[in-house]
C-alpha cells in the first residue's frame, strides 16, 4: 500500500508536528501573559485548527462523504462559537 508522503515524510507525521507546534505557541502565549480578545481568539483558533486536523487526518474523516463528514466539524464550530461569543462579550 502506497503511503502519502510530503518531502519523504508521512502526511500524518506532518500533521503531528504542526499540532505540536501550534500547542507550543499556545503555551508561549500563556506564558507571556497575553490576554484579551485578540490573544484568546488566536489561541482558540489554533485549537480549532488542531481539532479539524485531528478529525480530518487522524480520525480519517477527510475521505468520508455524506452525514458522517460533518459531526466533528459542527462540534468544533458550536463550542468554538459559544466560547468566542462569551470571550468577545467580556472584552
Amino acid at each position: 500500500m502506497k503511503k502519502r508522503t510530503i518531502l519523504g515524510v508521512r502526511a500524518c507525521t506532518w500533521v503531528w508536528l504542526i499540532m505540536m507546534g501550534l500547542t507550543l505557541v499556545t503555551y508561549l502565549i500563556g506564558q507571556l501573559g497575553l490576554g484579551g480578545i485578540s490573544a484568546s481568539l488566536t489561541v482558540l483558533a489554533f485549537a480549532l485548527i488542531k481539532g479539524q486536523m485531528l478529525g480530518d487526518y487522524f480520525m480519517g474523516l477527510k475521505r468520508i462523504s455524506g452525514f458522517w463528514r460533518w459531526p466533528v466539524v459542527i462540534w468544533l464550530f458550536l463550542p468554538g462559537g459559544l466560547i468566542s461569543v462569551a470571550f468577545t462579550l467580556v472584552g
Binding site: 500547542t23 499556545t26 500563556g30 489554533f46 470571550f87
Partner: peptide, 8 residues
C-alpha cells in the same frame, strides 16, 4: 487546554 489554562 487553551480554554482552562490559557485563555483570559
Amino acid at each position: 487546554f487553551p480554554l482552562v489554562y490559557v485563555m483570559k
